[in-house]
């Protein structure tokens, strides 16, 4: 019978985690808007969920509370606007904090493609309020998928094992059909041109 070596395995595990923790990794340019308030979790597993929807399918409807105080349903845009859902992992974290402010200056670009953005986060409203206040006034609604926790993220298959969401983009056309999915490496920001290219295909 093959002998196991628990001590060896423990040492090997410790060595590996020590080395990984020491690997310098940073690809974030944090805006000074957030001062020293960004929590650096370090590099994360690029993806930690399994999609439950696919391109060509009708997007599952949902209703969530928005920062403005209203409740917003995906279905309210049916027949009126294309919708880009942008799930971010968590408020006050590096890449997320430098993502929506970029979308905030290209309102005209989204309008040209008859598209509304819905920002989704599993954070609660008070957290989202204080975080997005640093971004200036966002022109698109920010929805809280906090309770039941990550319910919408789970339905789309982008809820990670630790309760945060993936950094994911879903583009849904006016018929409510999913036309594009990008579950991005959580450590990186999806380039804007990739999104615009997909918006152009909606015509």
């Amino acid at each position: 019978m093959k002998q196991r070596h628990p001590i060896r395995r423990s040492i090997a595990f410790c060595a590996l985690t020590t080395l990984l923790a020491g690997v310098p990794f940073s690809a974030w340019a944090i805006s000074d808007a957030y001062k020293e308030n960004i929590y650096h979790a370090g590099p994360l597993k690029p993806r930690d969920s399994k999609l439950k929807v696919k391109v060509g399918q009708r997007a599952p409807d949902f209703t969530l509370p928005a920062l403005g105080g209203e409740r917003i349903s995906l279905s309210q845009y049916r027949g009126k606007k294309n919708v880009m859902l942008t799930f971010i992992p968590a408020a006050w974290t590096p890449v997320c904090s430098d993502q929506w402010p970029g979308y905030n200056i290209v309102n005209d670009l989204f309008a040209a493609h008859d598209t509304i953005i819905l920002g989704l986060s599993v954070d609660n409203l008070p957290t989202l309020f204080s975080w997005t206040n640093q971004m200036g006034r966002l022109w698109f609604p920010v929805l809280s998928d906090f309770w039941p926790h990550g319910q919408v993220a789970k339905r789309f298959g982008v809820l990670r094992g630790d309760g945060t969401a993936e950094r994911a983009i879903f583009i849904i056309d006016k018929q409510g059909v999913i036309r594009y999915i990008d579950v991005h490496n959580i450590n990186e920001r999806p380039p804007l041109e990739g999104i615009v290219r997909e918006l152009e295909k909606l015509k």
Binding site: A29, S31, D32, A33, D98, Q99, P101, G102, N104, I105, Q134, M135, G136, R189, L192
Partner: peptide
């Protein structure tokens, strides 16, 4: 100037 399109302060 080190800036980012995604940085609110840079925009402002």
């Amino acid at each position: 100037q080190i800036f980012s399109m995604y940085c609110p302060y840079c925009q402002k």
